[in-house]
Design a protein around this nucleic acid. Structure first.
Length: 412
DNA sequence: CGTCCACAGGAATGACGGGCGG
DNA sequence: CCGCCCGTCATTCCTGTGGACG
């Protein structure tokens, strides 16, 4: 018995004492269920397209489109698992590489992870991207295997770095004798295709699979199925179930959202020692999810981004409305002086404000004040208290909690 | 109706930390 | 160990611009 099984038993035993969960795992975000309801068609199609690799020939490249929480990742992972399993049974040299491009971040890191998946170790940094790509090709050529590369959230990579890597990938087979590479690109941006060059598009888009958002009844169905597997009988009230699917359906049919809500609500119910999950728990879960996301973001920000955000917080606290980039920068500079840090330029701070905006912690929108210029109007995108709470524990920013910027006192 | 503010945001360039091959 | 090249983040310099004011 492996140590894992040992723990599995301990955990299972622990779980049996739970008055909420039957099997906690089923609601875990990464859990891939044995069957994916309402996605049979897509599963079948992708299976059909990739099946040729079992016989040693390359499958077509696939482009998958669908919004978040429509089951793209779950379906592809499910198909990959089954493909690997079948491959092992019949001794086909199949390898798969699943990469989330947004999490990987850069072209280089995507390539590095792809290389890692075929057994090529590359350093975090220091090598030219082209160099890693050459090595990757060499290893691939020497292995004589069939590789299925899945590039999830590929749009974020192409937006930031262009489609050069994609182009090189689609071309890779030309230079290989034995190995074959199939590419599966997953995107949730409809306009992604417009960012690709025609030659890349035609190659990647050999096959196209579209995942439509789940309808409200479908989400209800998924929730029902998962909750019966995950939770003890009679724990989930009908009202909670309905609210949960309604909230997720409103969010463009996002099933992941629904499952997150249910999981957090269930954990909450267990912690509180309550017997049933009601609509209240679902609502609390909704708040908790949002707050956790924000807290995580605020904590991991670089120092100067924190200071910019904290500046916006101080301005809001002084009940000044309509702050613009210049006001934020002024306060930010003062904060830097207090901390004895060199301030960044306004150009950079402007960029940081935009970054914070896309993260959703600031709201900024470009306005023209006519004679008084054109700028970004900035306001906090999250509750004031959250900023204070998170940063009062911060090593650097913590000193500034309660600080009243001088440059604000002579404004109204 | 033109002007001109207060920036936006693109492009080029530099500083820095890090791995590589010799 | 050195010189080289890389990715990342920041700086510098720049051109672009919506609309109130005169």
């Amino acid at each position: 018995m492996s140590p894992n099984d040992l723990l599995e038993n301990i955990f299972d035993k622990f779980l049996q004492d739970s008055h909420v969960f039957k099997n906690r795992e089923v609601l875990h975000p990464d859990y891939v269920p044995d069957n994916l309801p309402h996605r049979e068609e897509q599963t079948r199609r992708i299976g059909n397209i990739l099946a040729p690799v079992l016989r040693g020939s390359r499958g077509s490249n696939i482009f998958i489109y669908g919004q978040t929480g429509t089951g793209k990742t779950a379906v592809i992972k499910y198909v990959l698992n089954r493909l690997l399993q079948k491959g092992r049974e019949i001794g086909a040299p199949i390898e798969v590489s699943y990469i989330n491009c947004r999490l990987a971040g850069t072209e280089y890191r995507v390539l590095a992870r792809m290389s890692g998946n075929v057994g090529l170790r590359v350093p975090f940094t220091g090598l030219a991207t082209a160099e890693v790509f050459d090595r990757f090709k060499i290893v691939l050529g020497s292995r004589g295997s069939l590789l299925v590369v899945v590039l999830d959230e590929i749009d974020s990579l192409v937006k930031a770095y262009g489609d050069v890597l994609l182009y090189e990938l689609t071309r890779i087979n030309e230079g290989l004798k034995e190995s074959r590479v199939s590419i599966v690109g997953i995107s949730n941006d409809l306009h992604f295709k417009e960012m690709l060059e025609p030659r890349v598009l035609s190659s990647l888009g050999e096959e196209e699979v579209i995942f439509r958002p789940y309808t409200a009844p479908e989400i209800l169905d998924i929730l029902l199925q998962r909750s019966t597997a995950a939770l003890l009988d009679d724990v989930l009230t009908e009202g909670a179930l309905n609210l949960c699917s309604a909230l997720a359906a409103a969010e463009h049919g996002d099933a992941r959202r629904a499952l997150d809500l249910l999981r957090v609500a269930a954990e909450l119910t267990e912690r509180e020692g309550k017997q049933r999950i009601t609509e209240d728990e679902i609502r609390l879960a909704q708040n908790e999810i949002e707050r956790d996301r924000v807290v995580e973001v605020l904590k991991t920000l670089p120092l100067h981004s924190k200071l910019v955000l904290f500046g916006a917080y101080l301005i809001t606290k002084a009940s000044i409305k309509n702050s613009v980039t210049g006001d934020i920068y002024e306060v930010y500079r003062e904060l830097c002086t207090v901390l004895g840090t060199d301030p960044l330029t306004q150009r950079r701070v402007s960029g940081i404000i935009s970054e914070l905006d896309t993260m959703g912690v600031l709201n900024s929108r470009i306005v023209s004040l006519g004679r008084y210029g054109r700028t970004k109007k900035v306001s906090l995108g999250i509750p004031r208290g959250v900023v204070r709470n998170v940063y009062s524990e911060d090593h650097w920013v913590g000193q500034l909690v309660g600080y009243a910027p001088k440059c604000l006192s002579n404004k109204e």
